[in-house]
Design a protein around this nucleic acid. Structure first.
Lengths: 240, 240
DNA sequence: GGACACATGATCGTATACAATCTGCGCACC
DNA sequence: GGTGCGCAGATTGTATACGATCATGTGTCC
């Protein structure tokens, strides 16, 4: 059951008197989705998830509801929770929202970034490169998303950072469904350029780079009308 | 217990075979917050809320977690759920986020608005005016928020509309805490002007008007450094 | 041989029960 | 008289139990 690398209950263990375990489960699931260990359409049975994490369905339900709110999973009444499968339309919307939020946020970040911030970002990129070279595609993807979130944090806008976090999460699903080619290199270069702009305190450049970066990402997707191309045959034949 | 006008369980009744009752409770609470029947800092005891709505704590918890995700309530471990009290900083962030999202969305809406959309908006404004004249301040405030959400819907951006919905909700709390003067008239005029721009398909004007409208709103708040001015003394002395 | 009806099993929705934790009050002690 | 401790009440955190709903497989009828 645990072939996905989801940490077991014991691995999480007594991690300080943490209040809600639901958050822990939700975070683990979120991470698994970010790293494409859980793909769009997969069923998340309450019993199964609960057994994996060693918690009862109560906790699992709370976690799944959180993910549903982030639109990472879809809860179908009386049928269960499934990893979301963003439609082409939703995919576009996610990137349009990002286009509205991230460039200006990158500008703010450039104007406020401290040397420590830059160092953190540099480490992020290094990890991303390392993961990529190690062939850990999923981990690289997750780190790539964290880079964007970190920029929002540097911009000192917690609210916007939260939104961007949700959008990055959903982008991960979009990429899982609609990714066209495998040249992740361009992305890393984009992040390198962004880092340089931030380090140089060049807000205008950072804004432009971010805008271009998002457009690149969007154009690397295959968003022709195909309402559920990937596993649609299996799903469609399975039920409907 | 029900002096707040929260509809009882029977009022909600058998409203079609709706799946989740938690959503119903959450919506009622959200509405109560929007209309300032529930003010910042109020405690939402699980037992109490459950009794009012005629559901068990399981449902109430789910509803409260939803609201917590929208940052309308704060859940303190082992202490309970309270209507959120946005800090001055959060208040600023909310309006900065709105400034990023709404003007461009208003432009899109202007470019896409159908005559039916305009009619709907016109009705919204009429209701808003009526509520205002009837002295129903809370209802007017809620309708005023719905106007903004409706614009996002017209722009045909469900994702952004969702974000704006959250921000409008939080704005309601911000207004409850930091509102300075009582001249709600200016706001209505702003909505009138926006409606006209939308009807005229003038995207640029709509964008400008929305930007100005948000700035007006922000400037009508009293956001001096006062970390919890309203009930801070009581709260601060009560615990901390 | 195919399609519909029904029974069965699995899964979810909700309520309730129990354990853990916090709050408030009273009392002893300083 | 003030301060610290300890117990009782209340409230939340979690698990489990039970009823409802849906998916699936089998048998019969056409």
């Amino acid at each position: 059951m645990n072939e996905l690398g989801i940490p077991s209950a014991h691995a999480a263990g007594r991690e300080s008197g943490r209040a809600t375990r639901a958050r822990e489960v939700a975070d683990s699931l979120t991470r698994a989705i970010h790293e494409h260990r859980l793909g769009p359409g997969m069923k998340l049975s309450e019993d199964e998830v609960g057994e994996i994490f060693g918690v009862s369905r109560t906790i699992v339900r709370a976690a799944l509801q959180q993910l549903a709110h982030d639109q990472l999973v879809t809860i179908e009444p009386h049928r269960g929770a499934f990893v979301a499968q963003p439609s082409v339309r939703e995919a576009r919307e996610v990137f349009e929202a990002r286009a509205l939020l991230e460039p200006r946020t990158a500008r703010s970040a450039a104007e406020r970034a401290t040397p420590e911030d830059i160092a953190i970002l540099r480490r992020h990129i290094a990890q991303e490169h390392a993961a990529l070279h190690a062939g850990q595609d999923g981990a690289a993807l997750r780190l790539s998303g964290l880079f964007h979130i970190e920029i929002a944090r540097i911009a000192d806008q917690a609210t916007i950072a939260e939104f961007i976090g949700q959008l990055v999460s959903r982008s991960s699903l979009v990429i899982a469904l609609y990714w066209r080619r495998r040249n992740a290199l361009c992305e890393s270069h984009a992040h390198d350029a962004l880092l340089k702009a931030l380090a140089d305190r060049d807000g205008a450049l950072a804004e432009d780079l971010m805008k271009g970066h998002l457009l690149d990402l969007l154009s690397s997707l295959d968003l022709r009308e195909a309402p559920g191309q990937r596993r649609s045959l299996k799903e469609a034949l399975g039920r409907a």
